[in-house]
Design a binder for these strands. Structure first.
Lengths: 366, 366
DNA sequence: CTGAAAGCGCTTACAG
DNA sequence: CTGAAAGCGCTTACAG
């Protein structure tokens, strides 16, 4: 009899059952480790091996009501088509690795889906991935709060660096205390009196929280602040470099210290400053946020706020997983951060400290 | 009537049909953009919106025979638990991004699954992910050639940096000409007479190809070679640093140039050399392979072989996609590489020169 | 422990 | 264009 549809293998549990001389129910039980006689188990396992049988996950999921898949949606950086942009992969990728490792432990796999800024069919894209998963982890700036709230009615959702809605949960880091510690270090330990905050995307919750904390803490410390649209960056090195260039070209005097929204921004600011002959940190101090791995390799090594990036991902998965298996769960998990003092703030080079912050010698030639 | 099983929503196409006053067939047609009257379309779309209906991907896949998912399996680096290890994420992550972007264009999503070196249930892990996808992309060192050949009988498979089997396809870069161009540059342009190859994982096909090309080209150029187990690294910075330390501690004289299996290895070698006061490149030249983004930020900037990492990922997806949709396809795609001359080889800092030589295809040196 | 049978939520010929 | 019905490959009560 000719088989018109499936030209090749596409073996099913029926083939295994026939070969093993048992019912499909028995095959299923063996495959799932449920009760069965040694005899049956061995015959089924043999047939499975001989046929190289791979059970269909879709059928399994449909029957079970569980796909064992979490979807992760993140923003594709097609806004900044520069070579260095590759490095900005780091932050999201490390989070995603954290998600993946945690998922692994629960037998879940991770479905990745990036969306571009200009994707028009955002709704259907998200719907498609939601349909392929048991729940979704949404990175920053994917959906509006309203959009998240709506989608969360039909699908378990955890946001990263957002805020919880009626049905969705959120995981973020403690932006405020990180920035406060940084400002205090700059003002109290170094005695800098004028500061600026070089911001990230205006619509990023992390950025807003950092900006707010910066303003209140700097004001409380009695420092002079430079703010406003001229200091508006976009989390990218390129964007930051442009901001600094424009400021310098406009004859604007630099503040004594620039607190950047993230490490990429600090990288771009340092490049621009160096290109214009402004010494970092002697003339202007620059600091970051995130502590991506490359931060310690910059010149000077970057003083920044360390986020437990991997853990954020792992936590997001765990929170989502509990939500998938039950209702409830902590709606807004806040992870601690810590100040990492290196040299871009003006602190002296200290080999011992450098060694501590890295398992490998940083190799900086003093 | 109480609903014991699905406490919450779990809406189906039936709910949408009822609400819209049409049959489930019509709902399905509208959802898939097939022929339907404007009237029907609008009523269905309205109902979908009102209910926030998300079609179940598993049911869709089961019915269609297509999941629109490709699985990617890669090695989790739990062998090198150092902080800097984060950076080795880069290479795999960039490939995976390339896969993801290409997949996006075809309406596919990417299912990620890492495996640890010591995972015992490798077979069932791979089987589980294979069952959730339409095909698999396997990174380096996941399965033996025999294992790949067997699995490929039941599932479309593309390997990265491997070799094709009877049923599986492969995508790799042109290791041999990259290494040959590098050796020629070192021997002819710089006049170095003694070289060593600091290798990667012994069981990596890329590493073997690079090592072989190194030996034959260096021998042909009449250079002295240092080889053997003492030069066995593992693709990590830490591993490379240990190799160099051991060599130095053993009183071994360094060769004039060290060709490293990848950029991470070069990073580790440079760190170790610097720590022992050996100047790079004046006393010993060091080169890499990959050209990860951080390579240009090292001190000195790393001379290396550029791989089109993102394109490798994208190509792997495209090859797999054609295989999923038909049989055939190029069994062994080889992507070109090019020599990127910076300063760690001993070339002087010269932006113009660097620009020129980095534009040269690896195979076309004098 | 084991098998026959129903059902998971879609898509798709098949008629109308 | 539209609806009734079969079928995709599993899991799981339900009997035996």
């Amino acid at each position: 009899m000719a088989e018109p549809k499936k030209p090749k293998g596409t073996l099913t549990i029926y083939d295994v059952a026939t070969r093993a001389g048992v019912s499909i129910a028995s095959v299923s039980r063996v495959l799932n480790g449920l009760g069965s006689s040694t005899e049956t188990r061995e015959r089924v396992l043999l047939a499975v091996r001989e046929l190289s049988f791979v059970p269909d996950g879709a059928a399994r999921a449909l029957s079970n009501g569980l796909k064992e898949v979490v979807g992760v949606v993140f923003r594709r950086g097609d806004e900044v088509p520069f070579a260095d942009e590759d490095e900005s992969l780091l932050f999201i990728d490390v989070i995603n690795r954290g998600i993946e490792v945690a998922a692994q432990r629960r037998g879940f796999d991770v479905l990745m889906s990036s969306v571009g800024v200009h994707d028009e069919n955002l709704g259907s894209r998200i719907s498609a991935i939601a349909g392929k998963a048991d729940g979704l982890i949404l990175h920053d700036r994917i959906l509006s709060t309203a959009g998240i709230a709506r989608l969360a009615e039909s699908v378990p959702i955890v946001t990263l660096a957002g805020s919880p809605t009626a049905a969705s949960l959120n995981v973020r880091c403690d932006n405020a205390s990180g920035i406060r510690a940084m400002v205090r270090h700059l003002v109290h330990d170094h005695g800098y009196r004028s500061l600026a905050y070089l911001s990230g995307h205006a619509d990023s919750p992390d950025n807003k929280a950092r900006g707010r904390a910066f303003e209140s803490e700097a004001a409380a410390a009695g420092a002079d602040l430079q703010t406003g649209p001229a200091w508006q960056g976009n989390y990218s090195a390129e964007g930051a470099a442009q901001v600094i260039m424009a400021l310098l070209d406009g004859g604007r005097a630099m503040p004594r210290a620039i607190v950047c929204a993230n490490d990429q921004t600090a990288l771009g600011a340092m490049h621009a400053l160096a290109r214009r002959g402004v010494d970092v940190p002697d003339q202007v101090a620059v600091t970051g946020f995130d502590d991506v791995p490359v931060a310690r390799h910059l010149h000077p090594p970057l003083t920044t706020v360390h986020q437990p990036i991997r853990e954020m991902g792992a936590t997001a998965f765990e929170v989502l997983w509990s939500r998938i298996n039950a209702t409830g769960g902590e709606p807004d998990v806040v992870l601690p951060v810590r100040l990492v003092v290196r040299e871009s703030c003006g602190c002296a080079h200290d080999p011992a400290a450098a060694l501590t912050s890295s398992a490998l010698p940083a190799g900086e030639e003093a």
